[in-house]
């Protein structure tokens, strides 16, 4: 679909429907994309758009209803959990809620040790000990903390432990599912820096899911904009933020708070109304019920994701709209 050289992971026609019957919840409805080795791909969209569902399917915490997930050139979308097991050391996840993601009955040593043991990554007690200390050091925690329980840590520290657990198995691909949104703003910056650091250091490939458009801009190489389980636009970060083509992206960017009010665009479209139910999505373009540029044709035809500039794809029927220049200088 979208041309990406050297993909580590490539997704085609991925769907996840929850519930049987005539009106299942179409959480993810036919998405295709690829992530290059070493790339950080952002995934943004409103709550309920299917971001977590995509992330969970990529590492097979959820079984896809349909579609392909090629990881290192092998389709893992429908292989058994047993076949998945050896691959699990290559793909990890960092969760949003650092409180629920650590077992309250386990010491940090046991939490990290379990990751090592599961994949036979530390032989003998000494090596295990050393590796746990190393992992804690990696995420900026003191090695003495290994004998503590999760409740003795702050949210930010817990998230660091979650990162250490993910790194323990030396993965090449990490899904970060809103790893910041449960943290205080002051702590968020530290965790962003940590992720940035680790990404460079280990050449990690990452799917970074977030609500926070500023963080995505800072951290990601390319960005996918998701709406009701469908991709609206994909572009390199720079392009997407400065010349968004899809009306939904434009609305999202307009809705995000801007520090300097002088830079606020007068004619920015704003997002009004509620997101429709994924059990009963609108016909044609799913965004049409909230789109300021919708035409009658938008109810008839499902817009295909089409390349509008090299590496820049959008799913919108209208090509007569000016790409809105965001971020300052208007034209």
């Amino acid at each position: 679909m979208n041309d990406t050289a050297n993909p580590l992971i490539e997704v085609r026609g991925l769907r996840k429907y929850f519930g049987a019957g005539p009106q299942p919840v179409r959480a993810v409805d036919g998405v295709s994309f690829a992530i290059r080795e070493g790339e950080t791909l952002g995934l943004v969209g409103e709550s309920g758009s299917g971001k977590s569902t995509i992330g969970r399917m990529l590492i097979r915490l959820l079984d896809p209803t349909e579609g392909q997930i090629r990881f290192k050139d092998r389709d893992i979308a429908h292989i058994s959990q047993r076949q998945m097991r050896p691959l699990r050391s290559s793909m990890q996840i960092i969760f949003q809620d650092p409180y629920a993601s650590l077992n309250p009955r386990m010491r940090i040593r046991q939490i990290l040790g379990e990751a090592l043991d599961t994949h036979g990554l530390a032989k003998g007690k000494g090596e295990r000990q050393a590796r746990i200390a190393e992992l804690l050091d990696l995420v900026g925690l003191r090695p003495e903390y290994a004998d503590r329980y999760p409740h003795e840590f702050s949210g930010g520290q817990r998230q660091r432990i979650g990162v250490a657990r993910a790194l323990a198995v030396e993965p090449s691909f990490i899904v970060a599912d809103e790893p910041l949104s449960a943290l205080d703003v002051s702590i968020q910056a530290q965790v962003v820096n940590l992720l940035c650091d680790l990404k460079d250091r280990f050449g990690l490939t990452m799917l970074f899911i977030s609500h926070d458009l500023d963080v995505v801009e800072f951290l990601c190489d390319r960005v996918i904009v998701l709406y009701l389980g469908k991709i609206m636009e994909i572009a390199p970060t720079e392009t997407l933020y400065h010349r968004p083509q899809h009306p939904y992206t434009q609305a999202l960017l307009a809705a995000s708070p801007i520090p300097d009010p002088a830079q606020r665009h007068k004619d920015r479209p704003l997002l009004v109304g509620d997101i429709p139910s994924p059990a009963n999505p609108p016909s044609g373009c799913v965004f049409r019920t909230r789109c300021p540029h919708a035409l009658p044709a938008c109810a008839e035809t499902v817009p295909a994701l089409a390349e509008v500039a090299p590496g820049h794809w959008k799913a919108c029927l209208r090509n007569d709209l000016h790409p809105l220049s965001m971020k300052g200088t208007s034209q």
Partner: peptide, 13 residues
């Protein structure tokens, strides 16, 4: 349904 169980499954436990 708690996340630490998902984390364990993701590790291949």
């Amino acid at each position: 349904e708690l996340l630490f169980v998902d984390a364990a499954r993701a590790l291949g436990v």
